[in-house]
Simulated scan of single mutants.
Amino acid sequence: MSSQKESTVRTLTVAVLVCLVCSVFVAGAAVALKPTQLDNRLLDKQRSILSIAGLGRPGMPAREVKELFNSRITTKVVDLETGKFTDAQDPKTFDPLKAAKDPKLSKVLSGEEDIASIKRQERYTTVYLVEKDGQLDTLILPVRGYGLWSTLYGFLAIKGDLNTVIGMGFYQHGETPGLGGEVDNPKWRGQWPGKTLFAEDGTLAVDIVKGGVDPQSPKAVHQVDALAGATLTSKGVNNLLHFWLGENGFGPFIANLRAGEA
């Protein structure tokens, strides 16, 4: 074999060995870091829930977030078909978003039903409760739906009257910064506390209004200003709220809670 061929073979051999070593290293690092990544995702979720529920303070260290969440928040699983709490899934480990991709644990939504554009809906989901003196003080509901460019994932916190909003916000989305991304703007989020979701007759009345809310309107208590320059994102948020608070979402569950039958 010529020296040139030997050199080429050696070069290729070294390259292959380097690739193999790098692949093993990357794979090993991914496996080793996965528990940390999962823990960070859970921490972000807990931080978001506490913030939207008006608990804690900004910038709390991880330890305080976990301690406050575990001491104040009770996680339960709800069967969306019956609108009642269930023990069919473990609230500590159950992942509704993962379940939504499992044909055995979810259903395909028809075009008429799917106003939130989520395509599939899980049968079971998790809700979060804050109790005070043995009574429901705050209910936090997970909500999601498509905006302009992405699915928005968030939480809606309501008082124990199951009507008055404490807070609403999103912890993950891919909307355009400065436009649809204004769902993260504290000023816009600040419009939600105190709004009511349902009219006196029990019909769903919450609405995001293009052009601004008229403070003199009797409907103003249910309305929030649309995002400036982000019509489709605003419509998406409105749609996802109407889906998750309606008959195909938490509507039956809220009705059962009011009747003491959840």
Rank of each mutant, 00 (worst) to 15 (best):
Q4R: 13
S7L: 14
L12R: 06
L12M: 12
T13V: 14
V14M: 13
A15I: 14
L17G: 15
V18I: 01
S23L: 15
S23H: 15
F25N: 12
V26R: 05
V26F: 07
A32Q: 07
L33D: 04
K34Q: 13
Q37W: 04
Q37Y: 02
Q37V: 01
N40R: 08
L42T: 06
I49C: 04
L50S: 02
S51F: 00
S51C: 00
A53H: 05
P58Y: 11
G59K: 07
P61V: 07
R63H: 07
E64H: 12
E67M: 11
E67S: 13
F69N: 04
F69W: 04
R72T: 11
T74D: 12
D79Q: 00
T82L: 05
G83W: 04
K84E: 03
K84R: 10
T86Q: 13
D87M: 14
A88C: 00
A88P: 00
D90H: 07
P91S: 13
K92W: 05
K92A: 13
K92D: 11
P96Y: 01
P96S: 00
L97Y: 10
A99Y: 02
A100N: 09
A100L: 11
A100K: 10
K101Q: 14
K101W: 12
P103H: 13
K104Y: 14
L105G: 06
L105P: 06
V108T: 01
S117H: 09
T125K: 02
T125S: 07
V127Y: 07
Y128P: 06
L129M: 12
V130R: 04
V130D: 08
D133P: 03
D137T: 14
D137E: 03
L139A: 07
I140N: 01
I140P: 02
G145A: 03
Y146M: 00
L148E: 15
W149D: 11
Y153F: 06
Y153L: 07
A157F: 12
A157V: 01
I158Y: 11
G160V: 14
D161S: 03
L162M: 06
T164H: 04
V165H: 09
I166L: 12
I166A: 04
F170C: 01
E175W: 05
E175N: 00
G178R: 12
G181V: 06
E182P: 03
E182V: 08
D184A: 15
W188G: 12
G190F: 15
G190S: 14
P193Q: 06
T196R: 14
F198N: 07
A199E: 11
E200C: 12
E200N: 13
T203L: 10
A205K: 05
D207G: 13
K210R: 09
G211N: 10
P215F: 13
S217T: 02
V221H: 10
H222V: 02
H222E: 06
A226M: 00
L227R: 11
L227C: 05
L232H: 14
L232M: 15
N238V: 08
N238E: 01
N238G: 04
N239H: 06
L240M: 15
L240D: 10
L241D: 01
L241Y: 05
H242A: 11
L245M: 05
L245F: 02
G246N: 02
E247P: 03
G249K: 00
F250I: 08
G251T: 01
I254R: 00
N256V: 05
E261K: 09
E261P: 09
